[in-house]
Design a protein around this nucleic acid. Structure first.
Length: 468
RNA sequence: GGCCCCAUCGUCUAGAGGCCUAGGACAUCACCCUCUCAAGGUGGAGGCACGGGUUCGAAUCCCGUUGGGGCUGCCA
């Protein structure tokens, strides 16, 4: 428990995509370890073979690296440490701290019903002296008279009456170790000093503490983080809620935005600032500033962080990322000219979008003309047609072909037609981009080039005039 | 049911007895700016769950109530 060199671990269970709650836990572990000059271990808690899959492990590791959460050691796989758990179990039996039990779930429930008492195991096999055998689970002998205290950096001392804790299972009937046992053995073997995890683990923590005490090991310090909840204030669940880090990444969330948002979900450095670099978070992080109540995972607010980080991103890096997004379309060709065009429009796009995926709809018009369907879905009024026709005539005189010149011409036209630039630009934008919103029009026209602009304006005039 | 945790605007939070007529951010509404959108500016609405204490003084401390959540698995 020496604070000079704390040792922490993040121990996800590979039962699905990487959960944002897991990401938050990993981040807090990382923040504390780095802030204290300690070390961080990655452990894969894959003791439940029925629910784990190797590809999930790969996904978790990949997502962690994407979030720039790095580890000093690991990954360590619990599935490969079976003999350590078996040995510990055996020693617990020899020391009289654990015993084999052959009760089935049905039998236990039946007895609960008969005695009409509290649910849970009643210690039926405690004094039977059963030996190891097929179908027999190993249970820890809880000292009913004692009180177990958990020292938590977030919540202080939490007391549990042992009488409220049943003789819990350490090893399954098929010989497979359970979380409490494997977790304890590993944390001891790897000299873990600080256990940082979500609050849902708090009720089982006294079981771990009992194991430490029974084996005469130094009990680590715990830090239980508030759970993340959905809009119904229920714990975020993989089944019900949108929680996969991979999904957010694919949609165009930036790792720095996610980390910044997640850091502030349950922790606050105080004051009114909300944007923090990793270094700044690290400098002010501490568990005594972690909140105690469940926090709503708000994608809308995270999107706000994302928009900010996109807008301040290094332009070259933005273009790089934008290209990766465009590579997912059918029409993007990575020619030198296209990359140059993208680079030119990039700053205007960068300050507008919230998600990287929006690059597609913001830039598509530069690489291909709007389809006939798109145009016919937004028919021009007679007035708009005249505007487009006049624009067409005007634009051939523009020299040089620069945004400012184009703007001046269109302003003149608006004045001439006694309309606002606002109204004038609308049909032109539709004709050129097929959309009502997009990057600033004059820059867009300039980038499109005189010929392409003319061609698209002519194309829209070719559209049939709607009835009425 | 039992055990544990928690409780400030819709949301995330600041607040560690007087600085609070409770601050910020997201979301929301109005207005301004404006070639669309975005950004920006100004302003508005919106909260200390309730009841008792303690104290000269409580969002802050204590107790209770209510409410919410977590766990209650031979999952993690």
């Amino acid at each position: 428990m020496t604070d000079l060199h704390p040792r922490l671990r993040f121990a996800p269970s590979p039962t699905g995509y990487f959960h944002v709650g897991g990401a938050r836990t990993a981040l807090y572990n990382w923040l504390y370890a780095r802030a204290q000059g300690g070390s961080l271990l990655l452990r894969i808690d894959d003791t439940d073979e029925a629910r784990n899959r190797p590809e999930w492990t790969d996904g978790i590791i990949e997502a962690l690296s994407w979030l720039e959460i790095d580890f000093d050691e690991g990954p360590v796989f619990q599935s490969q440490r079976r003999e350590r758990y078996d040995l510990c179990a055996q020693e617990l039996v020899e020391a009289g701290r654990a015993y084999y039990c052959q009760c089935t779930r049905e039998e236990i429930d039946q007895r609960v019903k008969e005695r009409n008492g509290p649910p849970g195991y009643d210690g039926f096999c405690r004094e039977l002296g059963l030996s190891q055998g097929a179908g027999r689970a190993l249970r820890f002998k809880v000292d009913r008279e004692e009180v177990t205290t958990v020292s938590d950096l977030v919540r202080g001392e939490v007391r549990f009456e042992n009488s409220s804790i049943e003789d819990f299972v350490l090893v399954k009937g098929n010989g497979a170790p359970l979380y409490v046992l494997a977790n304890f053995v590993d944390d001891v073997d790897f000299h873990i000093t600080h256990v940082v995890r979500a609050e849902e683990h708090l009720p089982t923590t006294p079981k771990a503490v009992m194991l430490y005490l029974a084996r005469g090991e130094q009990v680590p310090v715990f830090a239980h983080l508030p759970v993340l909840v959905n809009e119904s204030r229920l714990k975020l669940s993989k089944r019900r809620d949108r929680v996969a880090v991979e999904d957010f990444r694919d949609q165009g969330f930036l790792p720095e935005a996610m980390c910044n948002y997640l850091a502030l979900l349950g922790w606050s450095p105080g004051g009114n600032r909300e944007f923090f670099t990793r270094l700044e978070m690290l400098e002010s992080f501490s568990f005594d500033r972690v909140g105690h109540s469940p926090a709503f995972f708000d994608v809308v607010k995270m999107t706000h962080f994302n928009k900010h980080y996109i807008s301040v991103m290094d332009p070259a890096r933005f273009v790089e990322r934008a290209i990766r997004v465009l590579e997912g379309t059918t029409w993007w060709e990575p020619t030198e000219e296209n990359v140059r065009t993208l680079g030119a429009i990039a700053p205007l796009v960068q300050e507008r979008i919230s998600l990287m995926a929006e690059v597609v709809e913001m830039t598509e018009f530069l690489f291909r003309a709007p389809s006939l369907e798109t145009l016919s879905a937004q028919p021009l009024t007679a007035q708009d047609r005249t505007s487009v026709e006049m624009t067409l005539g005007l634009l051939s005189d523009v020299e040089p072909w620069e945004p400012l010149e184009i703007e001046n011409k269109l302003r003149e036209l608006a004045a001439e037609r006694e309309t606002s630039l606002r109204k004038l630009q609308a049909p032109i934008r539709i004709a050129l981009t097929g959309r009502r919103i997009g990057p600033p029009l004059f820059e867009s026209i300039a980038l499109l080039g005189k010929e392409e602009t003319r061609a698209r304006l002519l194309a829209v005039l070719d559209q049939p005039i709607p009835e009425g």
